[in-house]
Write a protein that binds this DNA or RNA. Structure first.
Length: 432
DNA sequence: TCTGGGGTCCTAGGACCC
DNA sequence: TCTGGGGTCCTAGGACCC
């Protein structure tokens, strides 16, 4: 077993906890946060879970229950959650510079330099500091590998006596817990792998750890083999302290209603392309193609179904919103079909790119070269305006947003204020 | 009669994650 | 009426090359 101490810390019911930080009345009551479009529940406090509200439960199915039980319901507020996430990571970095941000609410920390007997105490200090400085409650899992740290974190959440910290670098804890935790809790074991493992008679994490890795590779690919080594304490997944460059980027949204008109669809993909450009420019990336898709909903069982996807090539890589919008509209123009009766009722559309490269490194086109000398400053000016006055303060006329009603745009009917990032939405405190 | 062997690249689809 | 969005990695199979 290695002597590394990989540590996974994450926020408990993170989005709900962010809401609680700014509204003390939410303490001790059930809280849930809904997905985009107020579609389904994606974060639940323990009180909400106790009411039987499942992850991913559609809002229209749980609305009555939430009303009768007094559940506090919020639309997702990613501006707030992203800012709170940055705050927790700033606290982690006070403890060690060796931090890998894994997701909006989870980070791996390398605490290998801490003496073994001090690790749990340091972890408790970390939790208390994060709680005091950001208001976010957390749990901490420690292990010799990332997979064991994830498992330790799961145990820390499930076993109240541990007081939020579980250390699997401790051999006694390791022996105690692995034969008591179901294999489906292991990071990387999903539904399909679980079915295969059950057929092999695997029940607990210890059962999986003790399998011969080579035959497992046949059934679960190299991923399964790695998991076994990781459970044995042999690290196969390094800490990634420098974030890898992103490989693809997508902006996709369900419509708040259904879309049957071409103009509306074009407006939606133009808006998505606008957002795509912002994301690419923020990271200095470019793309030489834009894929566009739109489709009806399989939930609309009676209506006709149609699913469309096409890729529009560009002469050279770009992140210019005007070019991306034109490409997205071209994708619709190329694939739009006159509506049958009854019409296709489109439920979702998106723009997707893969194979991103830093724009400065991309080759220039011989024919059809884009005007980068003009595009760069123009985009920079637009981004600066939108940063200062809020997203979509300035949008290209070609997006066609001004003319028609925005039936398609995403719903956030129960969103809390952007307490920490918008001066006009600052919380107010009274002292008596 | 005997019908190679090894490599790369690309794509689609599956699986999994938060 | 109403069912999220955005990623990564892996494999198999086909095309193509020498």
């Amino acid at each position: 077993m290695s002597d590394r101490a990989i540590t996974l810390i994450d926020g408990n019911s993170f989005y709900c906890s962010c809401e609680r930080v700014f509204d003390p009345k939410l303490a001790g009551v059930p809280v849930i946060v809904l997905s985009n479009n107020d579609g389904c529940a994606i974060a639940r406090t323990s009180e909400a879970k106790a009411l039987g509200i499942k992850m991913g439960a559609p809002w229209f199915q749980i609305r009555d229950l939430c009303r009768s039980e007094g559940v506090r319901v919020f639309s997702s507020n990613y501006t707030l959650y992203g800012d709170m996430s940055a705050r927790t990571n700033a606290v982690y970095r006070d403890f060690t510079p060796r931090v890998e941000i894994y997701s909006i609410d989870e980070s791996f920390l390398d605490l290998s330099d801490i003496r073994e007997r001090d690790r749990v105490e340091i972890a408790r200090d970390l939790r208390a500091t994060v709680r005091a400085w950001t208001g976010i409650p957390t749990c901490v899992g420690i292990g010799p590998t990332k997979t064991l740290a994830k498992l330790a974190n799961h145990i820390a959440k499930k076993v109240p006596e541990l007081d939020g910290v579980c250390d699997l670098t401790n051999p006694r804890a390791y022996d105690h817990w692995l034969c008591r935790i179901a294999v489906e809790e292991v990071w990387g074991i999903g539904r399909a792998s679980l079915a295969k493992l059950e057929a092999m008679g695997v029940d607990t994490v210890a059962d999986l750890r003790d399998l011969d890795p080579r035959p497992v590779r046949k059934a679960l690919s190299v991923v399964g083999e790695r998991i076994i080594h990781e459970l044995r304490g042999l690290s196969c997944l390094p800490l990634e302290l420098v974030p890898a460059r992103r490989k693809g980027c997508a902006v996709t949204r369900s419509f708040s209603g259904r879309v049957t008109e071409r103009a509306m669809l074009e407006q939606a993909v133009a808006a998505h392309a606008t957002r795509l450009g912002e994301k690419l420019r923020r990271e200095g990336l470019g793309t030489n193609h834009v894929s566009v898709f739109y489709h009806t909903s399989t939930h609309d069982r009676d209506g006709p179904q149609r699913s469309v996807s096409t890729t529009v090539s560009l002469p050279e890589a770009t992140n210019d919103t005007l070019v991306l919008i034109a490409a997205a509209r071209a994708g619709v123009a190329r694939t739009w079909r006159a509506q049958p009766d009854p019409p296709w009722r489109y439920s979702k559309a998106g723009v997707v790119t893969v194979d991103l490269l830093p724009l400065a490194q991309t080759p220039r086109a011989l024919i059809g070269q884009l005007d980068r000398a003009r595009s760069g400053p123009l985009m920079a000016a637009m981004d600066a305006c939108n940063l200062r006055w809020g997203r979509a303060s300035v949008v290209p006329g070609t997006a066609g947003l001004a003319s028609s009603p925005k039936d398609w745009s995403t719903k956030f009917e129960m969103r809390s204020p952007r307490y920490t990032t918008q001066l006009t939405e600052l919380p107010t405190a009274w002292a008596f």
